[in-house]
Nucleic acid binder design. Structure first.
Lengths: 209, 209
DNA sequence: CGCGTTACAGACTGTTCGGTCTGTTTTGTA
DNA sequence: TACAAAACAGACCGAACAGTCTGTAACGCG
């Protein structure tokens, strides 16, 4: 089915994502997407019944990649150390390492930001996938924090779900900081700060007894 | 000049801000703003030569209020305690207290988010006011952190500018979390987490010597 | 090779958009 | 009260928009 290298549908999705990350979904016109992906009206509306359907497809694909990264990096962290507190710190350190690439690839932006402001997509339940992705991050991290809290007295008085969410919050906030100040290193430095803050809160693990 | 209660220009700005916070600037049409503020095409383009000029006015007004809040709350914190580390913690606690109101007033959103994605406004230097606001937060907080670092050994190895920026990052990230999960308490709980993280990092102040 | 189906191409359409223009009312001031 | 300037009202305009329609080329498969 693909005429050249990549299937048309994928080319449309790739270029639509690029344009949306750059200037937002509402400000990106269908004609622009078509032009950028060397496609046509016919091809576009063959693959996507409406612009909203493109949005849904974009968001779904993006959220899947997001959760996949969460899982992959957590497994890497688990392979590095056994102690759950250390795993969380290592998890953040891994993202810190690729912070600059994330910013470059995503043009200092996150698709979630565009779509939580889209009326159409929030009206039907399309933005639910964002909630699911957030919940995935929260669940996975909170589980580690609960395990860590058994040997880390500093965690016992803390809302561990909120603390888990703070990782997501740091990502989203850092995207905005990076974009607003045109500073690509913001993601890396904010993840580093998050790791240092967490390190201080975790403290030294206490032997049982 | 005002026919009824509030001047037309202010009514336009208020309603434009409401609509922009709700669904983004690009997705908010001039006609909508006019209808919401019971105004007319003539009135609108009398006060604002173009939609971009409305955007600039919105952004400027918003950033001014933002920096004003920074200054006001920092002064309150300074009135509560003399020690700079404690001042930072109290500063965050003050915002934590009104976290729910912030979310409600601003519909779980921040104008900065809409405008960092606007091509037109970023092309000319209009989004520079965002940078200035961010710098104001960074400067004011970093100054406190530097002072605090004299008696707080936990701060000596930390990038204090990045740590100062993390407050802004937490705000922006919390807005997105609150919007995406439809949870108005997210701002409050994230500010609380930030305060607890900072508290752990600051540690106990050491007497000189 | 025949043929239905999928994948495209691009002219076209109705609507909405930002912005203009002409005219009317209100207001500050002398 | 006269009058210029500011504040508004709303019909109007061309461009851009999302989406449609008709037609054609390529493929899968018997």
């Amino acid at each position: 089915m693909p005429r050249n290298g990549k299937p048309t549908r994928d080319r449309i999705l790739d270029n639509a994502q690029r344009l949306t990350l750059d200037k937002g979904f509402a400000a990106t016109s269908v004609d622009e997407v078509i032009a950028a992906s060397n496609s046509s009206k016919g091809a576009f509306f063959h693959h996507f019944p409406s612009k909203s359907d493109l949005g849904r497809a974009l968001l779904t694909r993006y959220a899947e990649a997001d959760v996949a990264a969460l899982v992959a990096f957590m497994e890497l962290a688990e392979a590095t150390t056994e102690e759950p507190g250390e795993q969380v710190l290592e998890f953040i350190r891994l993202f810190e390492e690729i912070g600059d690439d994330i910013i470059e690839e995503q043009q200092s932006s996150c698709l979630y930001v565009s779509f939580v402001h889209d009326r159409q997509l929030t009206a039907d339940g399309s933005t639910h996938v964002i909630e699911e992705a957030i919940r995935a991050w929260r669940t996975r991290l909170a589980q580690k924090l609960v395990a860590a809290s058994l040997t880390r007295p500093g965690l016992t008085t803390i809302d561990l779900d909120a603390l888990a969410d703070h990782v997501f919050v740091t990502f989203e906030g850092a995207f905005i900081l990076a974009r607003a100040t045109a500073d690509p290193s913001a993601m890396r430095s904010q993840l580093r700060i998050l790791r240092e803050l967490l390190h201080a809160l975790l403290g030294q693990p206490q032997p049982p007894g």
